[in-house]
């Protein structure tokens, strides 16, 4: 469907997109994830033919966007970061203008506008001037514009920005519905959004693709760092001694006691093997009853932070999804090694 080959975009000395390559397959929802300023919007702008790349090319159904722009753009619907709305038009006028721009045949025009208005729930504001609409409605008009004519590929740059929680859920459902017949690429810096709707996540940082996989696989990639949270009745020293004797147990971290006489402990698993059974039997042999055992998988959030931020930052701002794009040069090194690691596991 879409092939992006070795894309580079320079703004002066700044590399906005740095040798980006990926392919997009039909009928899936792709999520571009990355901190602000990572190059998501620039990449989308290049893919849709709004910007030219410094080098590299984009093929849409085998057509180069720059060489055969009119043919290639026909199969794309695009909602840019700021919805491109003519504020002095009414919603209906605007959509009918877009329909003409997209060269939708006259016979189908009215029907497809009605359908889109119905899908994005714009019936109430159909006849109002766009400039008098709220941000949420404007965003929806922008979305309506993108899906008008039902192009094969729909590219959405931060589609849920400015919407209230109810609208966000509606739009997500809409995107999922559209994905049955269309290929959808959306960008976001909100992780929960991407993991909720996307089949495939591409994490971009500094204009580079640092990871590209399904949400589940991305979580598994980091399974080397999985931890078990245990609550064991018994003596602190004994518990630690017993646990240390089990193969595959890495660092132990004592947590504050919750229940009297119990030890709360975090066990980092250094192997990729499942050692829960071993722990159970070993503890049972030593008469140490296990009250709880919880497998703490690395969340997507951790993966994201790992890949886009330096480790130190990640620990400090664990609770926020991302810190606003102040990423320093020094991470480059850790990123490169991450990339290699990912490549290996992809193979």
């Amino acid at each position: 469907m879409i092939e992006v080959k070795d894309l580079v975009k320079k703004y002066g000395n700044h590399m906005a997109v740095n040798h980006l390559s990926f392919t997009v397959e039909k009928g899936q929802i792709y999520g571009f994830l990355g901190p602000n300023g990572a190059g998501k919007s620039t990449t989308m702008n290049i893919m849709t033919g709004y910007l030219g790349a410094t080098s590299g090319e984009v093929l849409i159904n085998g057509l180069n966007v720059l060489e055969e722009p009119e043919k290639a753009k026909k199969s794309i619907g695009y909602l840019p970061e700021i919805p491109p709305l003519y504020t002095d038009m009414t919603v209906y006028e605007y959509l009918s203008f877009v329909a003409e721009l997209k060269k939708i045949p006259k016979k189908e025009k009215e029907e497809s506008i009605e359908k889109v208005i119905d899908m994005v729930k714009l019936e109430d504001v159909e006849g109002r001037l766009i400039k008098n609409l709220s941000k949420g409605y404007k965003q929806r008009v922008g979305l309506a514009q993108a899906i008008l004519g039902f192009p094969e590929i729909i590219i959405l740059d931060e589609p849920t920005v400015g919407l209230d929680p109810k609208q966000i859920i509606e739009i997500r459902d809409l995107i999922k519905k559209l994905a049955k017949e269309h290929t959808i690429i959306l960008s976001s810096h909100i992780l929960s959004e991407v993991s909720a709707i996307c089949d495939h996540i591409m994490i971009i940082s500094h204009g580079k693709l640092v990871a590209s996989d399904t949400p589940e696989n991305l979580e598994n990639l980091m399974s080397g760092q999985n931890t078990l949270q245990l609550s064991i009745k018994g003596d602190k020293e004994k518990v630690q001694k017993v646990l240390r004797s089990i193969k595959g147990v890495g660092a132990l971290e004592l947590l504050p006691t919750v229940e009297d006489g119990c030890v709360e402990i975090n066990v980092t698993i250094s192997d990729k093997t499942d050692i829960r059974e071993n722990i159970f039997y070993e503890c049972a042999n030593n008469k140490l009853p296990i009250y709880t055992m919880k497998h703490n998988k690395v969340s997507l959030e951790d993966v994201f932070l790992e890949l886009t931020e330096s480790k130190q930052d990640a620990k400090e701002d664990n609770d926020i999804l991302l810190s606003e794009g102040h990423i320093e040069e020094k991470e480059e090194v850790s990123e490169v090694s991450k990339e290699e690691k990912l490549d290996e596991s992809n193979l």
């Binding site: 753009k73 794309i76 491109p84 721009l101």
Partner: peptide
């Protein structure tokens, strides 16, 4: 930013 609409349409 409406030029984005014009320039990305066919």
């Amino acid at each position: 930013k409406t030029d984005q609409l014009l320039l990305t349409s066919p």
